[in-house]
């Protein structure tokens, strides 16, 4: 199923690129639905595993913590703990659980903050952050603390860029490099706030939470 997931992501990116190059009028429409469709293979593959109630719980609990954190810090613009928690989820429980934690946190937190055209993009962005965190930790790249922080910062910036992309591709035409770069530059203050929040949340918890989650995984024989 991982193959399908990659295929979905590649399709999304190619839809974005093709629409931009051909200057299609309906770029906003096509990329929006491509994003919605890109989430589906991940969901179906999770569904097909038919997890036992116990194996659902890590995703549920970590998503609930992430959403609760986002609600508590809602007053500060773009200061969200979700990215940090999703990274930890991906590292502790593997890439699929990481994706589900991110995607479900995005969906549920928007039940509180209001759904919008950003919902599928947020789900996908956070999902992929968790997914990639899982893959990287499988390959032992995130073993050192500094690499986790670096990944956190990169992920926050990647999240911001990913979120801005739809607004730029769909509603600015024709695009040239000046356009794109300045639009992304305008988003940088928000991304810095996001990156700072991610590091601040990772700082106290990454070590203890990872240890704890691994212990719980072993103790309760979770998949």
């Amino acid at each position: 199923m991982r193959k399908w997931s990659w295929l979905a992501i590649i399709t999304l990116i190619s839809v974005m690129v093709i629409c931009t190059i051909l200057r299609i009028e309906q770029t906003a429409l096509f990329t929006f639905f491509a994003a919605v469709i890109a989430i589906i293979p991940f969901f179906i593959s999770y569904e097909q595993k038919k997890p036992k109630p116990r194996d659902l719980m890590p995703v549920v609990v970590l998503s609930a913590l992430a959403v609760a954190g986002r609600i508590l810090f809602a007053a500060l613009p773009n200061f969200k703990p979700v990215t940090a928690i999703v990274i930890i989820a991906g590292m502790a429980f593997g890439s699929e659980s990481g994706f589900m934690t991110g995607a479900l946190s995005g969906l549920v937190s928007n039940l509180f903050f209001g759904q919008g055209p950003w919902t599928p993009w947020q789900m996908l962005a956070w999902g992929l952050i968790g997914f990639i965190a899982g893959i990287l930790s499988e390959k032992n790249i995130l073993a050192k603390p500094w690499s986790i922080f670096l990944y956190g910062i990169l992920a926050s910036f990647g999240f911001g860029l990913f979120m801005d992309t739809w607004n730029i591709l769909g509603f600015v035409q024709p695009l040239n490099y000046k356009n794109i770069i300045s639009a992304y530059l305008l988003g940088i203050p928000f991304n810095i706030s996001h990156a700072v929040s991610t590091v601040i949340f990772l700082l106290p918890v990454y070590k203890t939470w990872l240890c704890q989650l691994k212990r719980i995984k072993l103790k309760f024989n979770l998949k």
Binding site: F43, I44, Y46, E47, K50, P51, L56, V59, V60, V61, S63, A64, L65, V67, A68, I71, M100, L104, S105, L107, V108, L111
Partner: peptide
């Protein structure tokens, strides 16, 4: 999507609990 629906319902329930 029963599994995901269940997860969503449980997340919504666990937020106030948490």
């Amino acid at each position: 999507l029963p599994t995901i629906g269940l997860s969503l319902a449980m997340i919504i329930k666990y937020i106030p609990d948490t």
